[in-house]
């Protein structure tokens, strides 16, 4: 497992040094959410009703922006091929990279959501539910996204293809993320059920996605 932690550490170091991926994702998130009230008009009731959905969808799109870079850099400089011949199984290497993506993109986006929620007049009591569901749901975004990133690795300008492949896979996360916040806003106790389903989706994708991603990467390298 030394290799796993070494790779995680390296990817996080690179994410900090390069910085552009996170900056782009956070900036995109901010811009999309900031533009929405301008488009819809200053109807506070309407904004506060649609806020959770807007925050979730914008988060998905922002996370999608940085996905293509997940394997691209390592493929371009040959690191990926060396990793494929290492004692650490490629599946675990993929898991380390997806985990690094979650830590460097998913968590900052989830933490930024309540700040943006203020711009949409989101009920402040919903903030814990919003951040909680986003933290529970974003691992699925990174890990499922790794499959798409691996499949479109060699496709030139594969970003759009990646979106087409991956966005449908995010639908369950989106549905249960929104429903959890809906339950919380109505004061019903369905929150924990939705949160558990979100966690289950995340756990399932953490377990299964690395296998698919590694298979796709092997195909890309052949």
């Amino acid at each position: 497992m030394t290799g796993f932690w070494a790779l995680l550490k390296r990817d996080l170091t690179l994410a900090v040094r390069e910085g552009s991926a996170l900056g782009t994702a956070l900036g995109f998130y901010l811009v999309v959410v900031a533009m929405l009230p301008l488009g819809l008009g200053p109807d506070l009731k309407l904004l506060s009703r649609i806020a959770p959905g807007v925050l979730w969808i914008a988060l998905l799109l922002a996370a999608l922006l940085s996905l293509p870079r997940m394997f691209e850099a390592d493929h371009e400089d040959g690191s990926l091929e060396v990793m494929a011949t290492a004692p650490l199984p490629l599946e675990l290497a993929v898991a380390a990279k997806a985990l690094a993506h979650w830590i460097s993109t998913g968590i900052p986006l989830a933490l930024m959501a309540p700040v943006l929620g203020l711009m949409l007049n989101l009920d402040i009591t919903l903030t814990p539910a919003l951040v909680g569901t986003m933290l529970a749901g974003t691992p699925a975004i990174s890990f499922l996204g790794s499959v798409g990133a691996a499949l479109t690795l060699k496709a030139r300008r594969g970003g759009l293809l990646l979106a087409l492949l991956v966005l449908p896979l995010y639908i369950p996360t989106l549905i249960f993320g929104i429903s959890a916040i809906g339950f919380a806003s109505l004061g019903q106790d369905g929150l924990s059920a939705s949160l558990l389903i979100l966690l289950a989706i995340s756990v399932a994708s953490v377990a299964a996605a690395p296998l698919a991603s590694a298979a796709a990467l092997r195909l890309q390298m052949s």
Binding site: M1, T2, G3, W5, A6, L7, K9, R10, T13, L14, R17, E18, A73, E76, D77, G78, S79, E81, V82, M83, T85, A86, P87, L88
Partner: peptide, 28 residues
């Protein structure tokens, strides 16, 4: 050990950090 046409070197890490990573990753 596979050494291909590409070097597997990260531009944003120092020479030493690059090697330390490979030493940890390949030589556990």
């Amino acid at each position: 050990h596979y050494v291909g046409h590409l070097t597997g070197i990260k531009a944003n890490l120092t020479a030493e950090q690059n090697l330390v990573f490979w030493a940890e990753y390949l030589g556990a």
